[in-house]
Design a protein around this nucleic acid. Sequence first.
RNA 1: GCCCGAGUGGUGAAACUGGUAAACACGUUGGAUUCAAAAUCCAAUGACUUCACGGUCUUGUCGGUUCGAGUCCGACCUCGGGUACCA
Length: 816
Amino acid sequence: MDYNPVKIETKWQGYWDTNSSHEPSNDFTKEKKYILSMFPYPSGKIHMGHVRNYSISDAIARNYRKLGFNVLHPIGWDSFGMPAENAAIKNRVHPKKWTYENIDYMKKELNALGLSFSKTREFATSDELYTKHEQHIFIEMFKKGLVYQKSSTLNWCETCHTVLANEQVEEGCCWRCDNEVEQREMPGYYLKITDYAQELLDDCKQLEKGWPKQVLTMQENWIGRSEGLEFDFLLSDESREKLGNKFLKYSVFTTRADTIFGVTYTALAPEHEIVKYLCQNKLISDDKIAKIKEMQAVSSRDRAQNEKEGIALDIDVIHPLTGKKVPVWVANFVLIEYGGGAVMAVPAHDERDFEFATKYDLPIIQSIENEKNSFDESKATTDYGKLVNSGKYTGMSSKKAQKSIIYDFEKDGLGKKVINFKLRDWGISRQRYWGAPIPMIHCKKCGLVPEAIENLPVALPEDVQISGEGNPLDSHPTWKHTTCPVCQGKATRETDTMDTFFQSSWYFMRYTTDKSMWEDKVFDKKSSDYWMNVDQYVGGIEHAILHLLYARFFTKVLRDMGYSSVDEPFENLLTQGMVLKDGAKMSKSKGNTVDPDAIIQKYGADTARLFILFAAPPQKELEWNDSAVEGAYKFIKKFSDRSQNASIVSELPKIEHDKLSKESQLARKKVYEALKKSNDVFTEGYAFNTLIASCMEALNALSSQEDKSVWTEGYFILANILEPIIPHTCWEISENLFGLKNFYKIEILQEVFESSSMTLPITINGKRRCEIEVSKESSKEEIFSLAKRSASKWIDGKNIIKEIYVPNKLVNLVVK
RNA sequence: GCCCGAGUGGUGAAACUGGUAAACACGUUGGAUUCAAAAUCCAAUGACUUCACGGUCUUGUCGGUUCGAGUCCGACCUCGGGUACCA
């Protein structure tokens, strides 16, 4: 059979379309599998990362379909976002036109890969119907008290009059006009994800079976729960006066109450109220005020990378236990968002505090003693130990002292035990056009009110100028003027749009519902109860924290609003590595991209799919290699060509194993090993590369023998195993030889693995020297004596100190 | 800076719970076939060393545990992902 990829791929893609081969059934009595890839952003053309993502999920979906499951494997488009606006700024194309043209183009590209997506449930998140339901969800969240407004610091470009995303800031300057970016306080909408912090943390436990450990660790660290002591530092009398009696105290949070006697200074964030007051009223030198302004101008991520810096504020607080005065500093490493924006500093037992104290020559007082790490002045010792120099707590262990100090603080009303999370509420406001409008209305009389449900969607106006300056929704002549849904008076719309993570936090639930119900329902409860959870979610490791955490959060919120019954959206998660070329991520700017279309045209979709799954395990980074693609093509061609050695049958041939030649027996063993591998690969780890290697070994072994029924059995099984990976080729072979009757769960035949003898390697002092052939029934003594005879060359004249036999594995003789 | 990973031949990689390092491929070299080429088939291929049998070394670096370490422990180096307004 001549291998002609273009011909067979067009043929089978047409066949699958005509027969709706990949649509899920609405028969909810069947066993289901929901296989999902993270949906793409329609950037213009698909890239190798997409090919990888969808080849993986497609293999999984096809495998389950073959095993008889009702499979949902949908696709859609994460189609709001900045690139569409950037394209509009650069090329004066309307974001909507640009986006939907990209979708059309990329849809064709995906289709050419032979991906078994359900085509009837496709949508784009920028569709007005999607926006309508999304705004409904937002309003329900608002009514539940999960949405609130507050101010926070954002990147602002004064010349463009716009907020900049972190990505649009290049070395502190605006990407468009190169003007210096400032940090500006602006109001925005926030979602109370912190209300779910504890549950999001706790439920990591139930994900341990199906999620990579590293992702859960990242999520746990991100949520960052810690228990500790919150207490107040009272300002000294002079300092209080200096601050015009506006402030009496401020609170700090510490997880190391046991080190409290080691406090030698305290530090405030540059945005702290007291710091602001000092600056505004010029209570410190102009020099210092200028330095503080400089600190405030640096974004928090840059601050973390910069050297620790601080300024003495010339005020003191009173240590709550010693009564001594402690100086107050402002420091760039103290974050306003966490722990009240103030810390107690213990340079002896905290690395950051130590670095800072050394730089500014602040005292270092030891308060913990550790036997293993003797205290020295050159570094902080952060280990637990016994308290010293700590008043009545001296001699206690760190653990005991923490409890005891917290107890005393609570008893004396000086402080309390608190649980703190690093996780912050989710700011969803974006001052951009190409997003879902936040459906809120500002009314002079009624205040902030949600749009009436019957008026949804609040759609985007199409007649806008996108120049990169200002917010197009704000500057639109009429769009924002509306009537208040409560009092019917004049009012204005909110002009912020939503973060695109909002759309990707619930799209997977939308797919569960049949398109016929999409107009009226956001999801159909019966359908989502049947299809959720996603049995296998596949996507890039770069989403390990944000997207996955937001999606988990939404799932819990939607559950609490009665839309679904699940606590967690994704049962199993596979995080794929990136596709690299010349050691770097493929990107247009680096000019190292490989166009999937060109590969498909030259070699066919099956080659692209085989290469990408063979080159590396899915979780690992994948280095692109042109000649290896050629190799993948050769294998498919060989597999296709040699199919003429098999006969036309409609079921597995019966073979008498004992009557076969050694080569034929080995070939059968290799074929069944590949089948076994296939079962293993799809149940744990998805190491398709090793499955493909097994298939190659099997084909090599088949080629070294001549028995026709062994060939036939081999192809019946190999075409079955490889179908998820190179579907077009396998359907073609299967149609020609087996009338498409070989796609089902084939049972493993144990007899091909049975053998009476085994080969054992002999190692001397752990080094492999020779091997012996022994019967499986041999005793340990027999094995040792045979081993010694075979290895005599290496052990003669030496003493055998130890003899080790690892059953069925090896023999090790320790000699001297 | 902080959190999470990765590092094995010329290249992509394999090695289940500590037990034969380099399976399967790519590349390279040699050979067969061919007028020639493509395609295909066969063989060799970690490094050093030896005429050869063989020997020595080798999983980023250094150290440790063990009869035995790519795998476990400790320190370090390099690269990658995330870092809350890229998606």
